[in-house]
Nucleic acid binder design. Sequence first.
DNA 1: TGTTAATTAGCAAGGGTTGCGAACTAGATG
DNA 2: CATCTAGTTCGCAACCCTTGCTAATTAACA
Lengths: 148, 148
Amino acid sequence: MHSPTELAEKFREKQLKLTPQRQLLFGLLHQNDSHPSAESLFEVASKQMPGISLRTVYQTLGELAEMGELQLVDVGTGAKRFDPNMTDHHHFVCESCGAVRDVEIAAKPKMRGGSGKFVISQVGVVFHGRCENCVPTAKRSPAQQAKK
Amino acid sequence: MHSPTELAEKFREKQLKLTPQRQLLFGLLHQNDSHPSAESLFEVASKQMPGISLRTVYQTLGELAEMGELQLVDVGTGAKRFDPNMTDHHHFVCESCGAVRDVEIAAKPKMRGGSGKFVISQVGVVFHGRCENCVPTAKRSPAQQAKK
DNA sequence: TGTTAATTAGCAAGGGTTGCGAACTAGATG
DNA sequence: CATCTAGTTCGCAACCCTTGCTAATTAACA
Ligand SMILES: [Mn+2]
Ligand SMILES: [Mn+2]
Ligand SMILES: [Zn+2]
Ligand SMILES: [Zn+2]
């Protein structure tokens, strides 16, 4: 995702208004690698701007996604996650606390057995497991980070 | 998934009743590689057993999944898909018609960069694209198979 | 400062799934 | 075959996540 300033630029060009809500969300998403859900973003946003609506969060996230500024990641834990990291990477999901981490890929997976029958436009790889805070040996209670 | 007969056996052992609904579903799922959703299975089942409830379909699918007889596949298209194929394989999703196909894996993906911090219990790979019925060159309308 | 198109926020509604409970039944027992 | 009962089914309400709709609000610009 581009920086808040660059996003502001882009929005203006498309005659989209630079509202306080959008500016706040731009800031919250910038370099955010926590893969927040709309709901969790909403909670954080609400602290800085009480009264902001969940609807607006969804709306803004949707716009940014459409503009190719962030990707929607569905890791199968209910709510979709939003990821400003548009580089080619995959995800690890802690099945205990729900945390989502980036997994860099060494080499692009190659299609095998498809023999040219399909047209692949996107490959999503999701690793499910337990993060370091949640491996059984670690007794501490799972950090319920970014769960909802 | 085991054969309907073997499943009947397993169910009896666990003092689970061998109801007509379950028998029907065992049969419909056996060697079914269409990755049906609960809803689509329900539709097919309803033809052979009018009156069967969607609730029962969900229930039975849940039981089979718990018994390790089938896996739930979430390909991010809304409803979860159910897959009696328990071998290690991945999935291709046609973004036009929603069809889900198996993709055999030549080699298991290796974790890299994780450096032993995580414990991986499952890896899901989903290829999104267009199936042979839906590639742009093919003018025929997308077969809306197994969509819902 | 006024105008207006874009945006917001709230609420209803939608799709998918699960909890609950009353009615029903497979299977065991005599 | 009649009885019994734990397990099952089914319908409905409720749940979560997300989107449609719309009246009220506001950023942007003349
Ligand atoms: Mn990511
Ligand atoms: Mn499969
Ligand atoms: Zn964790
Ligand atoms: Zn297709």
